[in-house]
Design a protein around this nucleic acid. Structure first.
Lengths: 164, 164
DNA sequence: TCATGATACTTGACATCTCAAGTATCTCCC
DNA sequence: GGGAGATACTTGAGATGTCAAGTATCATGA
């Protein structure tokens, strides 16, 4: 990379000239995600007095018939183990999930939704889906499919980089 | 027919077909963003011992010739004012940015990069762009443009919802 | 002028997050 | 049997994030 001289250029135009397409794509991707995520967070807070990570953890459990280990939750939620401990503590304290010791391996907890947790999650999930549909629904079905495919391709390539 | 490679375990992968298209699209969007963001965070940490929000704040300033008000930083970074206060404190303590009182309105701080901050940011920005290019670079230029356009449309519609 | 309300920022309480270090348990292998 | 190392989880420190309440300043208008 060459050192650039003290900029006497207009800052705005320099931004566009200098920024690589990939960088702009990344910023746009981030912006879209942040806006949607922010909306969902606010809705979860105002409608159910809960948070996105709590909802996420419950969503993982709802799909897992026999509960999940802390480490599995960590993987699926893409967060560290210490983080899962805290969120699980909070949900357990409210009686929405339980830790059950795995009889085969006493290091392991199997975390499960309680009946109350399940009931509450189902109510939230229905609303949640409605919010997302409202936020993305204005895109035509064709556009949605295009986006799905392109993001699918991106995702595969990211996975390949992670594996490498 | 596209083959699905070894499944990663994140949420989007395991959602069933009965889930609405919008929901799946949202989870996929989130998954891609999280993966990229996670990589960038790790790189910022290991290469420069700094964090994404600190980098983000400096990036906003670098594009603003005359500095930015705290409230402008808050808007552009899409975070609350209280958050900006903390990050600015930290950067100021290290001499990378300064708060200057606005002579026209003493409630206002204009935050600017110091010379040292500018130097440091430029080094980081070059690396950062390289990382992003590595992460997104495998998409063909055509795909990138398609993604840009689709995300642009999505972004506009989200903005419309916010305005409404 | 001076009360009133809006605006800009900071503070404090709390929930996520990461990382590194600590504890408990399991597994392997001599 | 029993130690060495791997694995599963928790803990604690520190950085981010939100929200609500607090302080300082500005702007308006009787």
């Amino acid at each position: 990379m060459k050192a650039s001289p003290a900029a006497s250029l207009d800052a705005e135009t320099r931004v566009h000239d200098d920024h690589h397409v990939s960088l702009r794509l990344w910023l746009r991707l981030l912006s879209c995600t942040n806006q949607i995520e922010s909306r969902v967070r606010q809705n979860l807070q105002s409608s159910f007095n809960t948070t996105l990570p709590r909802f996420d953890l419950m969503a993982q459990l709802e799909r897992a018939a026999h509960g999940l280990k802390m480490s599995e939750l960590s993987q699926r939620m893409m967060v560290t183990g210490g983080n899962v401990t805290g969120i699980t503590d909070s949900l357990e304290k409210e009686g929405l999930v339980v830790r059950e010791v795995d009889s085969a391996d006493r290091r392991v907890y199997r975390v499960k939704l309680t009946a109350e947790g399940e009931r509450q999650f189902r109510r939230m999930a229905a609303e949640h889906e409605r919010w997302v549909i409202d936020l993305l629904g204005t895109l035509s079905p064709k556009r949605k499919k295009q986006l799905m495919d392109l993001l699918g391709e991106l995702k595969e390539q990211l996975a390949a980089l992670n594996g490498a």
